[in-house]
Amino acid sequence: MISLKHPLQCMCGNNMSLPLLAEAVTVSGTEKETAAVIFLHGLGDSGHSWADAMTAIRLPHVKYICPHAPRIPVTLNMKMTMPSWFDLMGLSPDSPEDEAGIKRAAENIKAIIDHEAKNGIPANRVLLGGFSQGGALSLYTALTCQQQLAGVVALSCWLPLHKSFPQAASASGNRDMPILQCHGEMDPMIPVQFGAMTAEKLKVIVNPQKITFRTYPGLVHSSCPQEMAAVKEFIEKQLPRI
């Protein structure tokens, strides 16, 4: 079975959006919350592991929201039912993709952004992030979002429906959105070459000067303290105290 979840041991339609938010793990700020990070886990995982990771790098004025993906049958894993943002048929750039599922999942994440805006945190103070399948969804959502977001953290992932870009981003307000992309050089699931190809594609879609692609020697399909330090630094830069 393919597992694209974040290994804990390595860490030192809109109708669904409200349940997604209601059941999400939220790490509250320790002072007035003026910004939010929405972070999406990988296949077969839950929001809990990344809520723990976000707690370790938290900033006092930022709220961290880690939703749980719905449980659906996943083609890649012999139709086994598991937490997954959308169906996965394969892990190569030419694999068929669940276009309807990807677009539906993106709308659900956009609805969470809208909910935060209604409660006082505007879209330009919201940063999207994710690991593996969650990172893929965060990239797609941000690049097709009409509101201007603070940035994206994309860990060990790829750009879904990559052949539909840059046209798919034509109505987006995120041409100048900063993107931090990180990848382990020894990743056996999503090879680092796929990450590099994604970075090159992103440079065609958004301002290439806003793309940062970092790789980590020896790192497999996981995260490491150095990567999380880079994530914290990126969040601090894009979501400064008001």
Rank of each mutant, 00 (worst) to 15 (best):
M1C: 11
H6I: 12
M16I: 06
A22Q: 09
A24M: 06
T26I: 15
S28C: 11
K32V: 05
K32P: 10
E33W: 12
I38A: 05
H41E: 12
S46Q: 13
T55Y: 06
I57K: 10
I57M: 10
R58E: 13
R58N: 14
P60E: 12
H61W: 01
V62S: 11
Y64L: 05
P67V: 09
V74E: 13
N77W: 01
M82E: 14
L88E: 15
M89G: 13
G90H: 06
D98F: 02
A100I: 05
G101P: 11
G101R: 01
K103R: 13
R104A: 14
A106K: 05
A111Q: 00
I112T: 15
I113G: 01
I113M: 02
I121F: 05
P122M: 08
P122C: 03
G129V: 10
G130T: 07
G130A: 09
A136V: 03
L137K: 03
L139T: 10
A142F: 06
Q148H: 09
L149G: 01
G151N: 07
S156M: 04
W158R: 03
P166T: 00
A169P: 15
A171R: 15
N174T: 07
D176A: 09
M177G: 04
P178I: 02
M189K: 08
Q193M: 11
M197W: 05
E200D: 07
V204C: 02
V204S: 13
I205F: 01
T212R: 11
T215K: 15
Y216N: 11
H221A: 07
P225Q: 04
M228Q: 12
F234A: 04
I235G: 02
P240T: 06
